[in-house]
Amino acid sequence: MTRYVMVADLNRCVGCQTCTAACKHANATTPGVQWRRVLDIESGEYPDVRRTFVPVGCMHCSEPPCMEVCPSTATRQRDDGLVTIDYDLCIGCGYCMVACPYQARFKVTSIGKAYKNGHMSHEQSREHRERLNVAQKCTFCIDRIDAGLAAGLTPGEDVDATPACVNSCIADALTFGDIEDSDSHVSQLLREQRSFRMHEELGTEPGFYYLWEGAS
């Protein structure tokens, strides 16, 4: 079995948002929609204050509440753990959006544009009308994974089979791979370092791990 997960090393992330930009470039999401984003969390009280950058997005949960509630079966889960949306089935009821504890889903009602005076040429050439009025979210760059696998590549190791956000990370904070493969980079990281998953108490079994203490 294969189970693709992502690992974010909080010690390394510098909050540059390059992954956010890479995701927008790769997936042509409309303005206001960020499938991958990085939170900037300030905590503590002076003088003991901290600033933490936390990449978030769809966690591709093993027990996705969005899939359970979806009335149209538009949201599904593949055998490799990726949670998908069939834009042609989705009715845009928003139930998955209130069911997701990670604010990972978006619904837009019009093709957005970056500037007031009309769409730019690249916006026109890559507009996704199928995403209008339905739920949308991070796919873990599923098209890159599938194309890469078809070409005999290994997601997480070969750039052409790896999500754009991971490829773009300047600090090597994001890692992608198969957690069921004990030799994969993600398995190695999770074996050697301490990690947590967000909102684990909700039982969603998210496929997104955060490293927080550095290598032991």
Partner: peptide, 8 residues
């Protein structure tokens, strides 16, 4: 959002 630990 929430994190269980802030990083080193």
């Amino acid at each position: 959002f929430a994190i269980e630990h802030t990083p080193a």
